[in-house]
């Protein structure tokens, strides 16, 4: 049975972090000995809507 998470638990339980995108945030947390999993992600096509549209048309 799991107890319902409450906002204040964030400051009591050990923090476990999934960092998405900018890796420097993950490094900063690691330096503070906070457990972190980094996900190397960036917006598809660098966020360029025109490229994203062409990619979509070309089956990507």
């Amino acid at each position: 049975m799991t107890r319902e998470a409450k906002p204040q638990d964030l400051f009591i339980d050990p923090i476990r972090v999934v960092n998405v995108g900018l890796e420097t945030f993950a490094h900063e947390l690691e330096s503070l000995e906070v457990a972190v999993i980094h996900v190397d992600w960036r917006p598809p096509a660098g966020g360029d809507p025109q490229i994203a549209d062409l990619l979509s048309k070309l089956g990507s």
């Binding site: 960036r42 598809p44 096509a45 490229i51 990619l55 070309l58 990507s60």
Partner: peptide, 8 residues
Amino acid sequence: IRLVLETG
């Protein structure tokens, strides 16, 4: 080239 652009 699609994967190059998609992934950056």
